[in-house]
Amino acid sequence: MENVIEVNGLRKQYDGFALKDVSFSVPMGSITGFIGQNGAGKTTTIYSILNIIQQDAGTIRIWGKDPVQEEHAVKEEIGVVFDEMGYHDVMTPAQLNKMMKYVYRNWQEETFFSYLERFGLSAKKKCGKFSRGMRMKLQIAVALSHQPSLLVMDEPTSGLDPIVRNEILDIFQEFVEEEEHTILLSSHIIGDLERIADKIVFIHQGELLFSDHKDRLLEQHGILRVKKQEREIVRDEDVVSIRTSAYGAEILVRDREECRRRYPNLLMEPATLEEIMLFYVSRGSQMLPCDVPTDHEGQIGG
């Protein structure tokens, strides 16, 4: 499958934060969820992709093009949604339309107003008077009204109520129904990504922990629920991370079927995306570089 975005060895250093050799790709026609805690480096990565900030090292390619050298052409094809609106409170959607007409070559006035109508946004109301959900919808309307092939979104659903979130996720799914449309979506709401994402890229403290197809992640990982004395039975090479409690332990294993065969007497349950993420985070600092799963097809874990 052709990749729309390819990030290789991305590095960015700030005081107290560093993005360390982040590499991943976003396949065409997919929704790629970019997950991680607050401050993990999601926004920095997205801003680097959009050339809003300059990376210290590494290469980024969008449709094989250098987004710095061919910035104008690349940005014409990208719709962007930020976690905060960024438009002036005193402006109305109608005024935004007037502005964007001169910014995007492919700006579709009718499309924009039809989205406003669909989202129940008044064209004459000032942006400052919109609720958070409405502001997000306005950003999405702007992002979709110049016929982009790629949507890059930084936490578009955070702080929204479940109904609005659901509505917005439906719009994203509708967008990728077109074969060539692609979405890169960062979020720390795992439930949203579990619902719509095809691929998951997980970043933690500036480092990539894994990058793989969601279904494969869910298929391969499993949680063994064991008693204290049973812990020793499980081999270290099967274990991603362990959570212990007073009564026993939960062990995230990287090959569920293999472990089911190997430990038939232990209780094995499928892991949710959220559990996988939490186990990987808890393992965090103990991980060796060779443990870090990368973008290889079918390979999760070391």
């Binding site: 801003y47 959009l50 050339n51 809003i52 910035e71 104008h72 052409a73 940005k75 014409e76 990208i78 962007v80 930020f82 905060e84 609106m85 960024g86 438009y87 002036h88 409170d89 910014v103 995007y104 070559r105």
Partner: peptide, 14 residues
């Protein structure tokens, strides 16, 4: 105040 800086840099304008 509006945080327009990031929006501006994401737009296809020179």
């Amino acid at each position: 105040a509006a945080g327009f800086l990031k929006v501006r840099r994401s737009l296809p304008v020179s």
